[in-house]
């Protein structure tokens, strides 16, 4: 128990340090790398909270793919972030207000992992008890994701499909046009 708390505190402290470093650093490559580290720490936190499925996803998407795509975007722009010309008062007010509202919201959240939390009392007991008979898959997460919530996952798959098509339409088409116009100019 003490070990888990120690790991929690260590991960959260590193998360805070990474967040502050992200604010200070102006070299965008370093910012992208720190973003990856931030995701990796989040993945660690998910693992501590007994959500290995989410942790794997976070590690693969947040650390791997997102970092690579951002590095790819960096090859198209400058490496240094330009100092902002705008006043910092308004963003500060917005951040403080949002932070205050979130903290106020957290006060109402039931303690983590309590047996009588709403999340444990709604459909979860039914899934856990009937899954063995109805689905017969060892991993309940898979049973919920692919069978009980099959519609939702079909929707998610379609969203990913649509996102892929959208990016292809936006990026592939323009590249050809630009290559054509460069030839015209030369």
């Amino acid at each position: 128990m003490i070990l888990t708390e120690f790991v929690d505190i260590a991960l959260l402290a590193l998360l805070a340090i990474t967040g502050l470093a992200l604010l200070k650093i102006r070299d965008l490559v370093a910012v992208v790398m720190l973003g990856g580290i931030y995701s990796l720490l989040c993945a660690g936190l998910f693992l501590v909270m007994d959500a290995p499925d989410v942790a794997i996803t976070e590690a693969a998407v947040g650390v791997g793919i997102a970092t690579v795509l951002l590095v790819g975007a960096l090859t198209l722009i400058e490496r240094e972030e330009r100092p902002s010309q705008h006043s910092r008062a308004l963003p500060l007010v917005v951040v403080l207000f949002t932070g205050a509202m979130l903290t106020y919201g957290i006060l109402d959240v039931p303690p983590f992992g309590e047996a009588d939390n709403p999340v444990q009392e709604h459909v979860t007991p039914r899934y856990l008890e009937e899954q063995e008979e109805e689905i017969g898959v060892e991993n309940v997460v898979t049973a919920v994701l692919a069978s009980y919530r099959g519609y939702d996952t079909l929707g998610e798959t379609t969203v990913i499909f649509a996102a892929g098509i959208g990016v292809l339409l936006l990026l592939s088409g323009r590249k050809e046009r630009r290559a054509g116009s460069e030839e015209d100019a030369s």
Partner: peptide, 13 residues
């Protein structure tokens, strides 16, 4: 989707 998005990004430059 992931590999297509990556190709689309990487192919630009």
């Amino acid at each position: 989707a992931m590999i297509s998005i990556f190709y689309a990004f990487a192919g630009r430059r």
